[in-house]
């Protein structure tokens, strides 16, 4: 099973992972053309700055015991047993946002525009070359690693 592993010491807060995420979810776009000013532009990962601790990359951990899945009443969130990734089915979502409230890392959020769907990491649909954010990190602060669970 693959996970995005964070080495926060390496993060410079450049936000390239944000751009990569938005671009990966804007069809046909690339780093030159992705519209960062669009109301639809949403990133599924975040960099927070803390005066003491520096930059904090916050990424979906696709947890082993995911609070979001456990709290989801409609079945929109499920843990894929094969890949280990937490998947979201928008059609089943009731927009109750129990997942948002229960996520231990504060990474989940409703979409800005309609507030009817969840914005969540989809591991770029398990593309063979890996998630876009990881490819875009100039410091290798985020990397895909194989984990046992």
């Amino acid at each position: 099973m693959k996970r995005i592993i964070i080495d926060r010491e390496k993060c410079d807060g450049c936000l390239n992972c944000n751009i990569a995420c938005i671009s990966a979810h804007e069809e046909g776009s690339n780093f030159y053309t992705v519209n960062l000013q669009s109301p639809d532009a949403e990133t599924r990962n975040f960099i927070k700055f803390d005066a003491q601790q520096g930059y904090l990359p916050i990424f979906c951990r696709h947890c082993d015991e995911p609070e979001c899945v456990l709290s989801c009443m409609s079945g929109a969130l499920e843990k894929d047993q094969l890949t280990g990734h937490v998947q979201y089915d928008e059609t089943k979502c009731a927009a109750c946002y129990m997942c948002v409230m229960n996520c231990s890392y504060g990474v989940l959020k409703p979409d800005k525009q309609t507030r009817t769907k969840l914005i969540k990491c989809d591991f770029c649909d398990d593309k063979p070359d890996g998630p876009s954010c990881v490819k875009s990190c100039p410091k290798k602060a985020i990397e895909v690693k194989e984990v046992s669970r």
């Binding site: 450049c14 390239n16 875009s136």
Partner: peptide
């Protein structure tokens, strides 16, 4: 090979000490 997306789009400003500012969905 990894390029800065803000640099590629020209939306990074280093003209003052409040910056560098970049245009993001949360900072238009």
């Amino acid at each position: 090979s990894v390029k800065c997306g803000f640099g590629l789009q020209g939306i990074c400003c280093r003209l003052c000490s409040n910056g560098p500012c970049r245009i993001t969905p949360d900072g238009l």
